[in-house]
Design a protein around this nucleic acid. Structure first.
Lengths: 185, 185
DNA sequence: CTCGCCAGTTAAGCTACCTCAACAATCTTG
DNA sequence: CAAGATTGTTGAGGTAGCTTAACTGGCGAG
C-alpha cells in the first residue's frame, strides 16, 4: 500500500499550516498581519514569508497584495481554525488523560496537528471531555487507571489487550531517554 | 515559539521512516531487501531508492554496498521497530477506543507514526490496554461512553471540560465531509 | 565467449522550503 | 517634500525528495 505517499498530498504542509496559524494569531493579536510580523513570529526570513505567501495565495488560502497586509480567505480561516482546534484537543488529551509532560505534549501536538483528520480530532475531543466530566464511570475509571502500575508486568501474547505477537512496549520504552534529551527535559 | 521548526529536524523524515519499515518488512518477508523490492514496495522509482539509501547510510541507519542487499544497522532496526510499534498502538487506539473507521485510522496512523514521541506512544498503549482489559472500571466506562450521544449539546464556556472560550467541536465537524471524500469513504 | 536482459546507478531536472544579499517601495520626520 | 530608516520583494543558491532517461554491472543461454 502506498498510503504513505499521501503525506505529500495533504491539503497543506506542516509549514503552510503554521503560516496560516501565524496569520490568524497576528490578526487577533494586533489586528493585522504583515510580512515582517509573520517572519518574526515564525522565526524565518522575510523573503521566505514572501514566497510562502505566494504559494498560499495560489492555493486560495490567503489574499495578499504587494506591500500590503495579509488576509485569510474563508478556506484559509477554516483551515487555521481546524488546525488550532486539533492542536488544543491533542494537547489536552496528552497532558490530562495520558499524563504526558507539557513539553512533550506541546511538541507532539505541534508535529501532528495538521495531519490528524477531523474525524479523529472530534472523537478525541469527545473522549477527553467524557473522561474529564463528572460522570461517575469516568471518575472511577481515572482513579483505577491512575492506580495501576505503569509497568505492564505480563506482556506475553494475549495477556495484553493490545500487543499480539510481541510486546510493543519494549520497542517504545527503550527510546524514551533519547527523545527526552531532545526536548530538553 | 519556533517549536514548529523542529519538524524538519526530526531524526528521520516521513519518507525515511517508511524506507526503513520497507527494508524491515522485506527482510522478514523474503529474507533480503534489494533496491527493486523496495521500489516496488513503496511505489517509487529505483533511482529514488538508490539516492535515499545513500542518505540513510550517511545517517548510519542502513548499510548498502553497490549492487548488494540492504541491511539495517542496529539503530536503523530500532527506529523501524519503534515506528512500527507506534503505528500499531495508534491504529488500535483510534479504531478500538475512539471508534474511528479502519480507513481513517490507518491513514492517520501512517501520517503521524514517526512523529509521535515514544513517551506518548507508550502511554497510549497503556491507556488502550487498560480500557480493553477486563477491569470493571474499564468495562463500565466504555459502556457509559458508548451510550452517551455524539452531540455535545452544551458547548458554552466551562460546560465542556475541554473547550474554553469557544467550541472546538464546531471547527472540526464542519470539515468532516471534506476529509471523508479524500479517504474514499 | 559473447549477446542480451535485468538490476542498479548516475545524471539532469522538478517542486518545496529555506537562506542571504541586493534592490525597491513606503513611511517618518526635519 | 526630500533623506533616511523601515519594510517588502527579487534573485541566486542550497537541501530534500522525487522523476525520467541513459548508462553499467552481472549473469544465463546459445
Amino acid at each position: 500500500m502506498d498510503l504513505w505517499k499521501r503525506f505529500g498530498e495533504k491539503e497543506v504542509s506542516h509549514s503552510m499550516a503554521h503560516y496560516l496559524q501565524a496569520v490568524a494569531s497576528l490578526k487577533t493579536e494586533k489586528g493585522h498581519a504583515r510580512v515582517g510580523d509573520i517572519a518574526t513570529h515564525l522565526g524565518v526570513s522575510k523573503s521566505g514569508v514572501t514566497s510562502m505567501l505566494r504559494s498560499l495565495q495560489t492555493r486560495g488560502l490567503i489574499s495578499h497584495e504587494k506591500y500590503g497586509c495579509v488576509e485569510l480567505t474563508v478556506s484559509g480561516q477554516r483551515l487555521a481554525e481546524r488546525t488550532e482546534s486539533s492542536r488544543l484537543v491533542i494537547t489536552r488529551f496528552l497532558t490530562e488523560i495520558l499524563g504526558v509532560s507539557e513539553a512533550i505534549a506541546s511538541e507532539d501536538a505541534c508535529m501532528i496537528e495538521h495531519l490528524v483528520s477531523p474525524e479523529v480530532s472530534v472523537e478525541l475531543l469527545r473522549l477527553t471531555s467524557f473522561l474529564r466530566s463528572e460522570h461517575p464511570a469516568a471518575r472511577a475509571l481515572l482513579q483505577a487507571y491512575r492506580a495501576t502500575p505503569h509497568e505492564c508486568t505480563d506482556h506475553s501474547p494475549d495477556a495484553c489487550a493490545v500487543c499480539q505477537t510481541s510486546c510493543l512496549r519494549d520497542s517504545l520504552v527503550r527510546d524514551i531517554g533519547d527523545s527526552a534529551e531532545r526536548t530538553g527535559v
